[in-house]
């Protein structure tokens, strides 16, 4: 921890950006599996269960899990350290708040991040800890071939309108986080180019809209059809 504080501000940002990239790839894979909760193919349930089974048992993925947790932890820790230093860098605030332009969502990264963190804890409580056997499975969850059935569990959660509502709001905020984050991570790593940077920004806008929207489709489907 002490050592982490002593690293240069730029080194912290490299690590933050690399961890962020990793998390963004993870998010994409997670979405790919989740979408099969929606019955747009006949065997969507089987595909979803196979996907979950693969992600929870494949040894390569298991190994990646360590990186994933490490990535989250490092991203969150450094994010908080940087934010505290940034607050300290201006002990006396302006009477007239800064009205300069610049990236809008970048001003709220710590807040959108904090909301993601809270959801993350709830989410782990709902799914991951159940898998580990740390917490009790909620009622109505059936076991299929000695595996916890995350499909029926997801159905269970999304049939709760309040949960679905919170879920939708959370993913909108995640979109805000990602909208700034995507291009910011490139800039932090020094990847800026007169030709390619506008393209990267466009991909970032696309990613930050399409990925959260994909996640939101699931509760939306339940709200509309149940």
């Amino acid at each position: 921890m002490n050592k982490m504080l002593r690293y240069s501000s730029l080194t912290k940002k490299y690590v933050m950006a690399l961890a962020g990239f990793f998390l963004m790839i993870f998010l994409l894979i997670h979405l790919g599996i989740n979408l099969f909760i929606i019955p747009f193919t006949e065997n969507h349930q089987d595909i979803f269960r196979d996907g979950v089974h693969f992600m929870t048992t494949n040894p390569l993925i298991k190994a990646m899990e360590i990186f994933l947790f490490g990535g989250f932890l490092i991203h969150i820790l450094i994010g908080i350290i940087l934010q505290i230093r940034n607050w300290m860098a201006r002990p006396i605030r302006y009477a007239k708040a800064n009205n300069s332009q610049g990236s809008f969502f970048s001003k709220y990264m710590i807040y959108t991040g904090a909301v993601i963190l809270i959801f993350l804890i709830i989410h782990l409580g709902n799914f991951y800890f159940v898998k580990l056997g740390l917490t009790e499975a909620p009622e109505g969850m059936t076991r299929v071939a000695d595996d916890h059935d995350f499909y029926s569990m997801a159905i269970n959660l999304f049939s709760n309108k309040i949960y679905s509502g919170i879920y939708i709001v959370l993913f909108i905020l995640l979109g805000f986080h990602l909208n700034h984050a995507f291009q910011s991570a490139f800039q932090s790593l020094g990847l800026s180019h007169s030709k390619y940077t506008p393209f990267i920004k466009a991909v970032g806008d696309f990613y930050s809209i399409v990925v959260p929207l994909g996640f939101i489709l699931i509760p939306l489907y339940f709200i509309i059809y149940y």
């Binding site: 240069s8 501000s9 970048s106 932090s188």
Partner: peptide, 21 residues
């Protein structure tokens, strides 16, 4: 960069308010 960190300036979060002003 080491001097900049030592003097208590904050860290860049790529807000780009600097460029605008």
């Amino acid at each position: 960069v080491a001097k900049m960190d030592e003097l208590g300036f904050g860290n860049c979060t790529n807000t780009y308010a600097c460029e605008a002003v």
